[in-house]
Amino acid sequence: MIRIICMCCALLFLGLILAIGFDLYTEAADVFYDGYLTDKPSDLGTKGGIAPIILNTFIIVGLAIAIAFPFSLAAAATYTMVLKSQPTTLQRLFIFLIDLGIGIPRIVWGLAGAAIFSGLFGLGFSIISGVLTLALLLSPILTFGFIAGIESLEKQLKIQCQVLGLTDLVTFWMQLIPSAKSALLTTTLIAVGRGFGDAAALLFTSGIASRIPSSILDPAATLSVWVFQLTTAIPGGEKRAFAAAFILFTITLIIQGCLSISNKKRFSL
């Protein structure tokens, strides 16, 4: 009985996802043409393709992950190798800050990023401003996932290394990290998916420019910001927004597909 209910729920959910994809595609069908993925937009996005937007999305999310990943790994290392043996107050404070970082609404991150990076640091609407804001937003998510992945093997493996006189650094880098790599990959893919879908944090920081940037100080819109822009500020942009949303939806599906493959490998160990 439970199996049937689970199957029904799974099928319902799959149907819902397919319906969303189908709806996006049918709404945007008129917009697609051969050069849609390779052309630049024109007339405020009401004509042409979305090549620069896709490129900007990959640049901003890629750079944000490149910054957030080592930072989060270092935070996870600090927690598992140092704070775990310290008084519980420090551990609780650390976890509280991580939970707080995950819980803060993205729009608040966006406004904070705009105030700090765009305003205080004078970076204005720019890729770097968006990248730094997105990296801050993604770091707690990455740190939380890394800690969960490492903690699942940490205690036994850590003691096993300690009794051989190995340092915490060697234990972390040469045993814990390689053993937890599937968990790290899964967490990173979740963060990438989050980065692709985020508009609130980038709207106020990286701006809405639809051209190919010449430097990281140029403004640049990502797909989600572009969808928001087309629906709210461009008259007649709705169909174009559906088309961009369909591309975003497809990229998200690809990332989730990678996540499923990663998890399959992880659970078949």
Binding site: I159, Q160, Q162, V163, L164, G165, L166, T167
Partner: peptide, 11 residues
């Protein structure tokens, strides 16, 4: 770390 190299432990 140095002590553990001198006094080993098998868990």
């Amino acid at each position: 770390e140095n002590l553990r190299q001198q006094i080993g432990l098998v868990l």
